[in-house]
Amino acid sequence: MSGAAGPGPPAGPGRSPLPCAPRPAAPLQLAGGAEAARPGVAVIDLRFPRGAAADVQEIVFRNFYTAFLSIRVQRPGPGGSQRWVTCLRDLCLMPCPHTEEGSQDYFCLHRHQMLCDVDQVTAMRFILRQPSPVWLHFTIEDLQIFPPGQKSPQKDFPSWLSQLTPPEQPASLHGELPDPEKVSTEVQQMWVLTEVIRARQAAARIGRFDVDGCYDVNLLSYT
């Protein structure tokens, strides 16, 4: 599989998904088929409110036991008519449909992974397939569509998280430097001990009324 799908957080701070209302996954029904039959195909329809068209930059969702995903979008075609085109075909979400791998991962699909342009989209249809009979239900959850022009959440990470190794490496450390591993071990344990005190503070109070050993005369009463 291409590096198409990667786990990631659903949404970062500083960006907001497009408002949309996906319907719950509807299993495909065969005409005259039994109600209990499980066809292994489900469809999620999604429309943007008030018939508005949207440009799609990124689609983020959490898988729930869907093995393959196809996406069709409704776009303006030639002559002003709306037509359906397939923009993603059978993306593999679970490498082996019978096992857990990938079954509940987050996926993030980018614009450049699509087979066609995804501008001016008025409706989307997610076609979910699960060939394995092991799973009773399958769907995708937390579906969010992001428009272009929003900065990626990676920019908001604090510097210590994005630079786990120090930016500048010294050319050569002094020979007489003490072992940094040992120093780090001891210092970290000292930090932990301080954290213990912070975490287990006393909630009770003595209930003193005096300030610097003196009482406010109004607090004293004859009862």
């Binding site: 190794t165 010294p170 450390l173 430097l177 930090w191």
Partner: peptide
């Protein structure tokens, strides 16, 4: 907070700080 403290007190950061102090 825990992650940040761990990053600040990691061996490489401390080695860097000590090296700078010596210089």
């Amino acid at each position: 907070r825990y992650l940040e403290a761990g990053s600040r007190l990691g061996p490489d950061r401390l080695a860097l700080a000590m090296d700078q102090a010596l210089q």
